[in-house]
Design a protein around this nucleic acid. Sequence first.
DNA 1: ACTTTAGGTCACTCTCAGGTGACATGTCAA
DNA 2: TTGACATGTCACCTGAGAGTGACCTAAAGT
Lengths: 209, 209
Amino acid sequence: MIGIRDREGTKKKILKAVGHILKTRGFQDIGINNIARESGVDKVLIYRYFGGLQELLHAFAEQGDYWPTTNDIAPEDDKNIKNLAIPEASIVLLRGYLRELKKNPSAQEILRGELMSKNELALETAGTREKQGRDLINLLDLEPGLRDRIDVTAVAALLSAGFTYLILRSKTSGTYLGLDLNSEDDWERIENALDQLVRSVFDHDLKFS
Amino acid sequence: MIGIRDREGTKKKILKAVGHILKTRGFQDIGINNIARESGVDKVLIYRYFGGLQELLHAFAEQGDYWPTTNDIAPEDDKNIKNLAIPEASIVLLRGYLRELKKNPSAQEILRGELMSKNELALETAGTREKQGRDLINLLDLEPGLRDRIDVTAVAALLSAGFTYLILRSKTSGTYLGLDLNSEDDWERIENALDQLVRSVFDHDLKFS
DNA sequence: ACTTTAGGTCACTCTCAGGTGACATGTCAA
DNA sequence: TTGACATGTCACCTGAGAGTGACCTAAAGT
């Protein structure tokens, strides 16, 4: 097959292959040779156009349609969220994030990669997500004085980290503390626990304030 | 150097090397060649004595001093735990587990490995830990009726998964939602959030029971 | 028409991990 | 003493991934 001499097109094919491998095989399979095979492009071109794996991943992260947007997470518009009471707003955001993450294999693989060190993607993506996360939290952390009584950041971190870990595990071990992480019923239980924890921590706050 | 013809001794050296690599370099570096180098034993002997990597890891998991014992987690004896009120007992157990995990690199690497699939250690170790986890929960889940109002398993799973994820991340990205996972101060905040969540979920329960 | 250049192909090298066959030698039993 | 076997050593093969140099050729400018 003769190449079509379309640099931009070729670059897109390469980037697309990265996304495809990420989604279907996981970040462990991201490598020059695999990407070349998957995209049907000679690996030399990857070096020529991007410089190397690191730079390719950088480009991928920038272009990135691999991560849920804030709008995916909270489908109702911001105004709506802001009109909800804090506990409900928190639940909407946390559950929204949970559900998006759960159905988005690319995002999961990104997070898995960030957990493995010596991974170039990690540094690229972590920054972006950090910012988004803090933005989401800022939607909540408005009520004056709330911050003094509840460490919203720490609570949100602990809870979101919790279901993140469980989602990542669901693909491998598949079970945690007896919960079946591939069963919709058990995920229902987890979401309910999330609900209950959020609600009670805010109620508890009200009771003493 | 001439070998000393001590099969059991050699096997121990090999097992020890597995633990050492796990602790100091992480599960990614577990491999036949590395283990052979680290232990100063020819890799052929690994195949001869254990069969292969899979079986070696199996043996390592069985022998395993890589995981905190129940007693490490809850230093006071069981009676003591059982005499505490449910919220306090939960906090003791969760914080105990958190702290043990935090200072135990081998355990962290085991968990990291379990998150990566195609990892032999995962299947071996997950079972053991599952059992321990359920045992710990059973220490709590005694009060009649409690189970109907609070899904102790799901709550414990979510919270322990939460700090597990944060601990694993601390070694790589080092930051989550703006929290610095290498700062003792920020860990203080996380532990406090854990406390607050547990206390309030049980209080909330009391209020309506 | 002729040169230049950029897109694309091919064929290598290097390194490192897993895995195995052949051999050397200490030890123990007959 | 001698043979069998267990313990340990060495050299080698395979496969896969990263990376590079040399080449071919379509297209665009002169």
